[in-house]
Design a protein around this nucleic acid. Structure first.
Lengths: 203, 203
DNA sequence: ACCGAGATTAACCATTCGGTTAAACTTTTG
DNA sequence: CAAAAGTTTAACCGAATGGTTAATCTCGGT
């Protein structure tokens, strides 16, 4: 009935799962083929090599993440409003793709230069990050935001948003929380994070 | 002059470097041997297998981390004081071993159960974590600390402390910061993190 | 019906990898 | 000093891995 020529997409889906689960070095082409229920040769037929296939998956992840930045941080809204949007969209996206942060982290350790150039290219497209940083400095001068080095500011937000998803496997076990329970905690954190930023970053 | 029988330690040092750089699956026994300037067979002579050698490295990392917890969180000092100590010692330790967080993160993704059982065993030795959590609940009842689910509380501290070290490779490039500069930022963060916790977690 | 291009498969290949072996070298010990 | 114990090495091994090949299948267009 519904068995059309979706092989190419099947491969990507399978590759995503296997690469995320085992990392680049730990992933086996055979495992990806099995997961996609196809012959191993098909992988090389559609995507030349392991590295190329991995690149596709990584591109997707980088796109997804940089999109969040662009949507939340563009425009003229005040910094704290943008932050609220970023917190919300990032939390949602990661909740739907819980393994992306670890996946990206592994790639950063494996090949930092390649990843960073991919990400930077995306963000430089519309000067998203640059403009946002300038906006922060403006609001600092207007004494809306506390004067704090930009990296510290960014580091703090990203820490509060991203880390809980990375540490999920540990916390789930230590505190005996269900997957649904953890997702709920992440939802609650939206408000908590915004409140923390409000209380500590604004004047 | 100083070339004694330090082969065993040399191997551990080399293994640490290679495992951290490439992860378990990506690390090659030959690369470890080269790094230690010995024959590959020596690795198996001193440590039976790759898995066993990796286990040694991981044990060391877990020990180091759990030690911080034990030192900072034991005793009868108020929660916020303990937190201050934890922030400081954790930051120092990671500053001296910057790769440990990523290393542990990779292992959590690779084999979550094994890691968590190792860590939990360490922390259960003196009920460190359990006692600290009870203390938090006490201070919440005494209206010293804000009533907030314990996991959220722990997640917030750990996020602020650990994540900046994980994200270092990215931030260093994005903001063009030197290694020394980043270490300095981490030093400054000690106060910032404590202040954030103070402002948002106490009543 | 048939043909040809794209899709799919089984079998195969070269290399790499973790691990082993047996011999040689070094240090300890009686 | 000589045997024993501990250390180191080169050569080797089987299994696994990423990748290739040639043959086969599928199916829309003529």
């Amino acid at each position: 009935m519904n068995s059309k020529k979706n092989t190419e997409a099947d491969i990507l889906k399978a590759a995503k799962k296997i690469f995320i689960q085992h990392g680049y070095a730990g992933a086996r082409m055979q495992a990806i083929a099995d997961e996609a229920k196809i012959n191993k040769a098909m992988l090389h037929y559609y995507y030349r090599s392991k590295e190329a296939l991995f690149g596709r998956i990584m591109d997707g992840a980088v796109d997804l993440m940089s999109q969040q930045f662009r949507k939340a941080l563009s425009g003229t809204a005040p910094v704290m409003d943008k932050l609220k949007a970023l917190i919300s969209s990032y939390t949602d996206t990661i909740n739907q793709n819980p393994y992306i942060p670890i996946f990206i982290l592994n790639e950063i350790a494996r090949n930092p230069i390649n990843f960073q150039s991919k990400m930077q290219r995306k963000l430089e497209e519309e000067n998203v990050l640059q403009n946002f940083m300038l906006q922060i400095m403006e609001e600092q001068e207007k004494e809306i935001l506390r004067p704090l080095p930009i990296p510290q500011f960014m580091l703090t937000v990203m820490s509060l948003i991203v880390f809980p998803h990375i540490a999920k496997p540990v916390f789930v076990r230590v505190f005996g929380i269900s997957d649904a329970g953890y997702a709920g905690m992440m939802e609650d954190r939206k408000e908590l994070i915004y409140e923390m930023m409000q209380k500590t970053m604004t004047l």
